[in-house]
Structure formats: structure tokens, C-alpha cells
Design a protein around this nucleic acid. Sequence first.
DNA 1: CACAACGTTAATCAAATGATAAATTACAGC
DNA 2: GCTGTAATTTATCATTTGATTAACGTTGTG
Lengths: 223, 223
Amino acid sequence: METGKRRRLTPEQRERQIVEGAIRFFAEVGFEGQTRELAKRLGITQPLLYRYFPSKESLVERVYHEVYIKRWQPHWETLIVDRSRPLQERLVTLYREYTQVIFNYEWVRIFMFSGLKGVNITERYLGIVQEKLFVPVCTEMREVANLPSTDEVPLQPEELELAWDLHGGIYYLAIRKWIYHLPIPDDLSGHIERVVYSFIEGTPATLRRFFADQVRQPGVSGA
Amino acid sequence: METGKRRRLTPEQRERQIVEGAIRFFAEVGFEGQTRELAKRLGITQPLLYRYFPSKESLVERVYHEVYIKRWQPHWETLIVDRSRPLQERLVTLYREYTQVIFNYEWVRIFMFSGLKGVNITERYLGIVQEKLFVPVCTEMREVANLPSTDEVPLQPEELELAWDLHGGIYYLAIRKWIYHLPIPDDLSGHIERVVYSFIEGTPATLRRFFADQVRQPGVSGA
DNA sequence: CACAACGTTAATCAAATGATAAATTACAGC
DNA sequence: GCTGTAATTTATCATTTGATTAACGTTGTG
């Protein structure tokens, strides 16, 4: 019954170990995962968790914080609007860097568990993504497609959806891999290049057709 | 304590009611949802569930069966290869019909819960989707892009990924709505038209570039 | 109107689970 | 090496949860 050695760590080390372990654990089994099982995996006893976190809920909060705060790279926002580089290049760079941050087991699964559970972290996070990434992307796309700037003609929801679509197609790769357990291409970088290329090639025509229809039947969807 | 009326149903009606309720219930809270809570929502007592299903597990099995079997429309497979209609039209029709089947609360959430839990239903289902839908789509795309048929040059994984990307972009709408609780456009039909249009417009160029690169550096990713 | 058949329920069990309190032991500083 | 502090564990509690049992009611039939 005795588990051999009893290792005594500094509170900082132990807390770190618990948080890291909790991230992996909750990412795997969800937040219904039991504290006893978590403790077992950490090689400690269950009550010890309660010495470091007053409740399971507070530990979960900590996990959220650890996974989703501090990972956002503000320079993405400036990267998109840097017109000294072609938009395609900017988008490829952006998505290469972005996937480097979020394409991992913990990020993807915890985000999905949170969404299913109704934790508002998903809504808040994606609100930021839309504001800081998709809106600028659409603004730049207007330029590439030789369409009026967003100052002249305000951004339409339908345009934003095309950015969501690009994003969704890429993120779906992560879902396939870490949630559905399906194989995805090794060459993520090349894939990003191709879907961005398709986006750049296909979107201008779509936008021009959309705005042409708009003129013909103005506000048919809005009013 | 007495719950007023006690309704007496035929076994068929009662079973039907339990299954329908279980689908809604598990879609909402996941499979960790408790039998007592389910019974409460159905307005029955918990042991009654066990008169109809020997265990919670068997009820869950029944839910899977109910949601994912019988919904696949075989005519989708013939629709894609019908060259009497433009590919764009076929794809728009396909995705309009497909989303009509799977764009709903129960389908999307139960599928996601299953994936997270590691139930192999997701892998099996998406295997079918790839075989029956994406492969034909890619084959047809070769035709549209004026590229050699798949008889001459076998289908490349990279091409398949472009079909996955189209699919992922669309399915991501469902994830946004029923998992992340975010608003999505009312006009799903119009959106599908636009992303398919972008796909048709953008993909040929991407494919031609891909195959050109292939010739230049043959098998750089495969071997 | 009696009664059999069966749908329905209250009561309850055993195991699991989040949380607490008290006992134990590793380790730093003298 | 002591020794005191605090890190860690053992033991335990109160609920919750899947599952079972036996009693209770309702309904249709002769």
C-alpha cells in the first residue's frame, strides 16, 4: 500500500506540477475528470490538491487562464495590415504562426470542452479573433479585389463570413486530429499555403459577384 | 411529493419518448448526464428508464443509432457525379441538402461529445464522408480544372485536403452555432453558394500550381 | 365486478466523488 | 544530529450516482 518515496517539493514546484498535470488531464477527459484520478496521475494524494487549490473549480479556472491567456500574439494584428508584403504572404505567415500556438492537444480539446459546457471563454476569445483578425483581413481583401474601401462601403457580414470560412477550414484540421483522431497531412505549412492561395484566388470573384447582386437587389437579406 | 398525474403509455410510446428525450438531454449535457436528471425532464421516475433499457450504456448506444443511422442520403453520391449539371450547382445542392440533415443541435453536439470521448463513431462516419463525397468531388474537380483524370494521375492527398477544407469551413458554421453559441448568418443557403463559388474559382489555380510544383520536385512530400 | 397483466413508483444499496481534519514525515536551519 | 515547520498522507464525511427490489395503480377483459 505504501507508495514508496514521499517527495517533498517547494510550493512553487508542486503547484506548477499540478497545473501542468491538470491541463493534460482535463484536456483528455474533460472537466468531469475526478480529482482522485488526477492526483493518481500526478503521483500524489487527492487531498494534496486541496492544499493548493481551494476547490476543483478554482483549479479549472487556473487551467483556463494558463491555456488561453498570454498566448495571443499582438503582432499578428500588425502583420495583417502590413501592405509592404502581398496579402497572400501575410495570411500564410499569420496562419503558420497561429497554428503553431493553438494546434496542440490541450488547446483544442479544452476549448471544445469549454464550448460544450457553455463556458463563455469561447465566445469571448472568438470575438477577439473576429475583431482583431477577420475584420482586418476583410479590409485588406477589399484592396486586393479592387473594391471600395471599408470607409466608403462598410464591411458586410457576408464578407466576414468568407474570413470565418478560411479560418474554419484550417481549424477543422485541428478538430480532425485531436478530437476525431483522424490523420491530417504532415505538411501543414504547405496546406496552409494552398488554402490561402485558393482563398486569394477565389474570393475576389465571389466578392465582386456579391456586390453586383447587392446593387441589383439592395438589402434583400437585411430588410 | 406525489407528482399529480401518472400517465400510462404503451411501451412503444414510452420507449420513443425516452429515446427522444435522451437525445436532447445527452446532446445538451453530454454522456455524463445523470439518469435521474433525464427522468426528471421526461416527467418519469428514474427506475422506469431501467425497465426499457438494461443500462445507461445501452440507452446511449440507442441514441447513437438513432442519430447517425438512417440519415445518410445515398443519392448524394450520385448527385456529385452527375455531369449533366455544372459542378458548382451540384456542390451547392449537395451542401444545402447535407446541412439540412446535420445542421441541428443534437447531431452536432452528440457528434462532438462522441469525438471527445473517443467513441469510434466519428472516425467511421467521416471515413464514409471522405470515400463517398470528397473523393468524387476531387475527381470532378480534375475535370473542371482541365487536369488529367484520376485514372491517369491518382488522387493526391493534397487534393483531398482541399475538399476537406471546403467541408470544414462549412461545418465550422455548425460548431460556431451549437457549440460556441455564436451567431451565424441567417442566409445559410446564400453562404453556401458563395463558399462553393470561391472553391470553384480558387481551386483550379491551386491545383495547377500544385501539380506544376509536383513536376518540378516530384515526391518531395511523399518519399 | 373481479382480477390478471403490466406500467409506474418509493425505498434502498453499493460504489464513487468532492471536500475536510487529523496524523505523519521530509527537510531546512541551527 | 536535533527540532520545528510545513508538506504530504491516512482516514473519514456527506452527497451523488447507477442500479435493484418490491410494492402500488391502472387498464382491459370475461
